[in-house]
Structure formats: structure tokens, C-alpha cells
């Protein structure tokens, strides 16, 4: 099982994402933004950071990078893709996920441990959790407020495509407390909080983030 982790100019969390992949028991494969090559990986993680300095809009320029053309093509064939934080923003900009991420309600960069509820435990990245299970992982962003057109919102809520919801306090004014969403087929998931930072008690608030990386092992 080989899981690709993409590095763009300005990516920060690729090392932690690769570490989470290894903790889950898979091989982490570094993928470069400028390549048109997924190196035959079984799944892809688009990690967090500030790709292209958040120029234009967070994730906008990275969504057009050569490697993202391959990710979009792969996703159309069922390749599991996980976008974390800036990676979530990139997947929305690439139209792999609905909605958009905007400036936090109070304009603050929020950095804290955050409780989440797993709303959909049937996706490629959440099958290891129970539906309704609560986990605590770090959240750290300034543009994490999920918004979508009313009809889009009704669709993703109606189809159970909210993957994670904030509990115990919404950190950024995100619509309906949405922390993460999934594609219609459950193969692509994006979330603003950072499960890759919650895989070892030495450095994280819990090990409850590891479940995303172990879930996908059963999905390919």
C-alpha cells in the first residue's frame, strides 16, 4: 500500500502527513507539484500549509499545478484523495469538493485542539471510525470558514456528505459547523483540522487522527 503526499511551494505539513502514513503501516511516497506523475500510488494526501503563499486565494494556484491534473483524473477513477487544511482548500478550488473556505469570522488565526464529530463513517478515509464518534485533533488556520451556495449546502447535508462537524465550539464561523466534507462517492475527503498532527501523544493531543490514515488501507 503506497500513499502519495504532495509537496507544493509553501507546503508545511507534508512531513507530518508522510509520518502519519507510515504510522498507519503504509509506504509514504513524495509527490512533486511540478510532475505529471502519481508514481502509481494507491491514494493521495494533499497536505496543509500555504501553497504559493496563498496568493490570489488559498489553494487557487496550487489547484492548477501539473500534479493536480493527475489527482483530478485519478479521483474520477476512484483514487482516494484526502485534503487537509490548505489541501482541503486546494480540493475545493479544483472542484473535487463542493463549497469554499473563507476568512475566519473573527479574522483570527485559530490554533487549538478541536473536538470533531465523525458524521459520515462510510468514506474511504473515515471507515475506521464509528458514525457519531468524537475525536480531538488540532485546528490551525485563518481561512477555514466553510461556505457554499444554499442549494449546494442542502445537497451535501441531504446526502450525508458532511464528513466532520465541529463540536464544543465552532472555531471560525463555518456554516452548519462543517469541518470537513466528502465527494458523492466518498473517495475524496477534505477537512480543515489536522489529523496528521494527532497520531502520537508525544506531539499531539490524541492519537485519534490516525484513523483517517488506517481507514484508507481498507479502501484500495
Amino acid at each position: 500500500m503506497r500513499i502519495g503526499v504532495i509537496t507544493f511551494p509553501g507546503t508545511l505539513d507534508d512531513v507530518d502527513a508522510a509520518r502519519a502514513v507510515r504510522y498507519a503501516g503504509a509506504e509514504a511516497v513524495s509527490l512533486w507539484h511540478g510532475d505529471h506523475d502519481l508514481q502509481g500510488v494507491d491514494a493521495v494526501v494533499v497536505p496543509g500549509g500555504f501553497s504559493y503563499g496563498d496568493y490570489l486565494r488559498a489553494g487557487a494556484i496550487a489547484s492548477l499545478a501539473p500534479i493536480m491534473r493527475e489527482v483530478v483524473d485519478g479521483a474520477a477513477k476512484g483514487l482516494p484523495v484526502l485534503g487537509i487544511c490548505n489541501g482541503f482548500q486546494i480540493l475545493c478550488e479544483a472542484d473535487l469538493l463542493p463549497g469554499a473556505l473563507t476568512r475566519n469570522e473573527k479574522l483570527h488565526f485559530v490554533c487549538r485542539d478541536q473536538a470533531l464529530r465523525v458524521e459520515n463513517a462510510d468514506t474511504a478515509w473515515t471507515s475506521g471510525y464509528g458514525a457519531g464518534e468524537e475525536i480531538v485533533v488540532p485546528v490551525k488556520n485563518a481561512e477555514g470558514r466553510f461556505v457554499a451556495a444554499p442549494e449546494t449546502l442542502a445537497e451535501i447535508e441531504g446526502e450525508g456528505r458532511v464528513a466532520f462537524r465541529y463540536v464544543g465550539g465552532n472555531p471560525n464561523g463555518s456554516t452548519n459547523d462543517i469541518a470537513g466534507v466528502t465527494s458523492a462517492n466518498g473517495r475524496v475527503v477534505g477537512l480543515m483540522p489536522h489529523p496528521e498532527h494527532a497520531i502520537d501523544l508525544l506531539t499531539g493531543p490524541s492519537v485519534q487522527g490516525l484513523g483517517l490514515f488506517t481507514s484508507v488501507l481498507a479502501a484500495v
Binding site: L56, R57, A60, L64, C92, E93, G99, A100, T102, V147, A148, A149, T152
Partner: peptide, 8 residues
């Protein structure tokens, strides 16, 4: 396609 995000 690029300068604006039609979602927002």
C-alpha cells in the same frame, strides 16, 4: 476560472 471563485 481563475481570478474569481464563482462559489463566493
Amino acid at each position: 476560472d481563475l481570478l474569481a471563485n464563482p462559489v463566493i
